[in-house]
Amino acid sequence: MNTRQRQTLKWWCVALAAWSLAGTACDNVAAGDVQVTMSGGDGTQRGLPDTLFQDGWSVQFTRYLVSLGDVTLTSASGEVRSSDRHVLVDIQKGDIPLVDLNGVPAGRWDVGFRVSPPEARTELADGQVSAEDLAMMRERGFSYFVEGHATKQNEPVLRFRMGFPVNALMNNCINGADGTQGIVVPEGSVARPEVTIHAEHMFYDRLGTHRGVQLRFEAIAATAGADNVITPEGLSTQQLTDLRDRDGNELRDAQGQPVIYQPGAFDVRTLQAFIAQSVVDQAHLNGGGVCTVVK
């Protein structure tokens, strides 16, 4: 064996040793599991009491359907762990297991997911949502569909039934539990992040912020028909610049001041469009953790 051959052999031995060590190191990377659930919390399950509203109404949901999936974790180095599971669930009935991701390297991960209408791949939660519900939402392009009723002292019970055609990626979510970015996957243990749906967004009186909002229902109530049912078609007759009560008069609050909805930078003209925009970012991480909306 000449000198050049000996040098080549030595190089291959060093390379093989390095690869062997690298493989061993990769095999020994600390990992944990991630179990994602979805919840509507007390808002969807127990309702919103009159103490939350500026105008004395309270709201109870009987159904709160959500179409959601494509949970994705992204590490600081750009590594991605994801699930293509897409489900249609009724979070009014309780918390729902969403996705399990096992063997995820321990450390911090960004969290993302997509709220989008049902597709051919969409699964139904057992015993919660019917195939007819799925077909209806898929046909009409709804990601959210809600039913319920609202009550106020000395007022008739009002019922509502409406859907919202949201298709948005919720990304770079802040952790509502501690205010940090994403989640931390613990070594040899389980992280349990929750996608939390905030039902109160439907009743916000301003867009583009979660600060300083008030919950209102009177403008919505004013659109109810003779049958005391509130519909999207009725909501679309309520102009933001000319809000009216059920008698057709200017809508005023308990202090006699005109009721004002603030659309911010969004070009919305009707109450229906306002509410449809407000629910776009109602999905959060671990309670109140806000996500970046990417359409």
Score class of each variant (00 low, 15 high):
27 D>W: 09
138 R>W: 07
167 N>F: 05
126 D>M: 06
12 W>N: 00
240 L>V: 12
61 F>P: 03
102 N>T: 15
244 R>Y: 13
244 R>K: 15
23 G>M: 04
27 D>N: 06
116 S>P: 00
118 P>N: 03
71 V>R: 03
138 R>D: 09
80 V>G: 03
142 F>L: 13
8 T>V: 14
281 D>V: 05
116 S>C: 02
233 E>W: 09
241 T>C: 09
16 L>I: 13
103 G>F: 06
283 A>E: 06
73 L>I: 06
28 N>M: 00
186 P>N: 07
47 G>V: 09
82 S>Y: 11
167 N>T: 14
288 G>T: 15
107 G>P: 10
258 P>T: 03
164 F>G: 05
265 A>N: 13
282 Q>A: 07
236 S>M: 12
156 P>R: 09
166 V>M: 07
87 V>Y: 03
179 G>Y: 02
6 R>Q: 07
55 D>C: 11
119 E>S: 15
116 S>D: 00
171 N>G: 00
57 W>R: 07
234 G>Y: 10
200 E>S: 01
208 G>S: 06
198 H>N: 10
61 F>S: 01
108 R>E: 13
205 D>A: 02
254 A>I: 06
63 R>G: 04
25 A>L: 08
137 M>H: 12
21 L>H: 01
289 G>H: 06
134 L>D: 05
232 P>R: 01
141 G>M: 06
240 L>T: 14
265 A>S: 12
149 H>Q: 08
204 Y>A: 00
262 Q>D: 15
10 K>F: 14
79 E>M: 11
246 R>L: 08
206 R>D: 02
160 F>H: 07
272 Q>D: 09
287 G>R: 11
212 G>C: 00
242 D>C: 12
259 V>C: 09
160 F>M: 06
112 G>R: 12
140 R>F: 05
140 R>Q: 15
171 N>Y: 07
112 G>V: 05
276 A>M: 12
283 A>C: 12
56 G>A: 05
232 P>H: 04
215 L>K: 03
57 W>E: 02
14 V>K: 08
98 L>I: 08
69 G>R: 08
237 T>V: 06
164 F>C: 07
273 A>M: 01
216 R>L: 05
